[in-house]
Design a protein around this nucleic acid. Structure first.
Length: 500
RNA sequence: GGAUCAUUAGCUCAACGGUAGAGCAGUUGCCUCUUAAGCAAUUGGUUCUGGGUUCGAAUCCCGGAUGAUCCA
């Protein structure tokens, strides 16, 4: 049954051609093609070949037909590496072949054999002596001139987006390169990559709401992890002094240009260092990412230049607040004082119950978005940092930093809390908050505390949002642009019709 | 959660409340030529969805869906 729409009519045209091809004994979905070169290889190899000259070098190329001119005399063929033009002159092809050519469509994938020639217009071409269909495409491609710009359609049908928009492919390549750079950086420093559980009985390690799922055989509620922290630290207890994981994290929160429910985070733990060492380490790693992906330490992001040269500015949270608001919250020793200060400068509070929470809210509301150049905000309030070691000099604070870039958080690191009794007290406080209705408070993970009691060396540890890093490296405004298949609300059932 | 905007042919977009249109794609020819190839002809619409106002709605009003941006 076919819908009376343009869409199915275009598809029907192609189905008819598919049928004709089959009747002519042509297999439209063959098994393999042995090419001799990728298109980019040929462009490089023959970059000095003069116009209107040809070689006797026989090559075999393949890819998707993106455009055709003069009734298939000229074909723009794209593979993963780039473009080559096919030159299908009737002198070089018999009548049957020329007829077959007319059954092809833009979007089909074909393979061609021929000699290399540069046309008088200067286009490097394969002068085709033979070709074969490698896949008949049934769907019309968006018009390549006007493009494929509907954002929703692009995310929902990312494969079309990838075919049409080269910058999407480029972004995902850079994402891969950034992750590879980080792995190389860590591996070359003796780090071990270890995978920890995604399904967890308790979702801890961060303040976030988890996704809930169910294991049938065990009849057990399980949570998707919101962090890898508590398991990676168990590995440090077990004797791995340098571990990391680059893994998918799930947080049951809203969707925005900076948030996707599932995202990728690097967590890294290194024994015998503190948060100051960690800042040096982080600077070096990010600089390496910038230079390897962008070839420079100066990233252009949404019209601003971000300088990733070391060292980044380091400033205490209370000092950053003072710089922006003029308020010395450090001197305000009580909850009521900082609360009054927040109200005075127009910061809306939403259930904050401690002095440290209010200070953090003031920072997030007033300061965070002003921090464009890479900046380490250091020395956080203890109340919002239940896994961080107490500051060696400043009571009420912890040895923690967040790295701010382009007005948002990119990384979060600290001297890890290793005192099992302090850790127990902190998590018990979290459990009280949870019992009182705070859905983002951490659960009391008794096995984690038991691990701490066996003893963990002094350790520095950091989490870096890979998606946000890739946004910076690729000048992407939305996190969805750096995720191949971002989370979308289902629209309506869309699937190809049944074949006639 | 709130505000604003968007949704029309396969794609990109038009259309004062008055016959739904263009370019590209598609189809049929011509042209052995090209670079968004060209020329001629031609097909194609539940205007996101459901109500309402109106003689008449793509257009105005209300609800819904999806998305974008901003705010919280």
């Amino acid at each position: 049954m076919s819908k009376d729409s343009e869409s199915s009519r275009l598809r029907d045209e192609r189905l008819k051609k598919l049928q004709t091809l089959r009747e002519q004994g042509i297999q439209p979905y063959p098994y393999k093609f042995e090419r001799t070169h990728q298109n980019k290889d040929l462009q490089e190899k023959y970059k000095d070949l003069a116009n209107e000259t040809e070689t006797q070098d026989v090559v075999k190329v393949c890819g998707r037909v993106m455009n055709e001119r003069n009734t298939w005399m000229f074909v723009d063929l794209y593979d993963d590496s780039g473009k080559i033009q096919l030159f299908c002159h009737k002198e070089n092809l018999d009548k049957d072949k020329l007829q077959t050519l007319k059954l092809f469509d833009k979007g089909d994938i074909i393979g061609a054999t021929g000699t290399i020639r540069r046309t008088k217009a200067g286009e490097l071409s394969v002068k085709v002596t033979d070709f074969e269909l490698l896949c008949k495409s049934l769907q019309p491609l968006p018009d390549s001139w006007s493009g494929f710009t509907d954002v929703e359609a692009r995310y929902r049908h990312r494969y079309v987006d990838l075919i049409i928009n080269p910058e999407v492919r480029d972004t995902l390549r850079k994402r891969s390169l950034a992750i590879r750079t980080i792995r190389n950086f860590l591996d070359s420093r003796g780090f071990l990559e270890i995978e920890t559980p995604t399904l967890q009985v308790e979702a801890g390690g961060a303040d976030a709401r988890p996704f809930v799922t169910h294991h049938n055989t065990l009849d057990l509620e399980l949570y998707l992890r919101i962090a890898t922290e508590l398991h990676l630290k168990r590995l440090v207890v077990g004797g791995f002094e340098r571990v990391y994981e680059i893994g998918r994290i799930f947080r049951n929160e809203g969707i925005s240009t900076r948030h996707n429910p599932e995202f990728t985070m690097l967590e890294m733990y290194c024994a015998y260092g503190d948060y100051k060492d960690l800042m040096d380490f982080t600077e070096e790693m990010l600089l390496q990412c910038a230079t390897s992906v962008c070839g420079t330490s100066d990233l252009v992001y949404q019209g601003q230049v971000l300088n990733f040269k070391q060292p980044f500015k380091r400033i205490r949270m209370v000092d950053a607040i003072k710089e922006v608001t003029g308020k010395d919250v450090e001197s305000m020793k009580t909850f009521d004082e900082v609360k009054a200060c927040a109200t005075e400068i127009g910061v809306r509070l939403d259930g904050e119950k401690t002095r440290g929470e209010v200070i953090n809210t003031i920072f997030e509301e007033k300061v965070e978005h002003t921090l464009i150049q890479p900046t380490f905000i250091i020395d956080y309030p203890v109340e919002i940092s239940p896994l961080t070691k107490a500051h060696r000099d400043r009571p009420g604070e912890v040895e923690r930093f967040e790295l701010m870039v382009a007005g948002r958080e990119l990384a979060n690191g600290y001297s890890e809390l290793t005192d099992p009794l302090d850790q127990r007290a902190r998590l018990e406080e979290q459990a009280r908050k949870k019992a009182a209705g705070d859905v983002e408070a951490m659960p009391l993970d008794l096995d984690f505390i038991l691990a701490m009691e066996y003893g963990m060396p002094p350790t520095m540890g950091i989490g870096i949002g890979i998606d946000r890093l890739v946004m910076l490296l690729t000048d992407s405004a939305s996190i969805r642009d750096v995720i191949a298949f971002p989370t979308m609300k289902p629209h309506k059932e869309e699937k190809p019709e049944q074949s006639v």
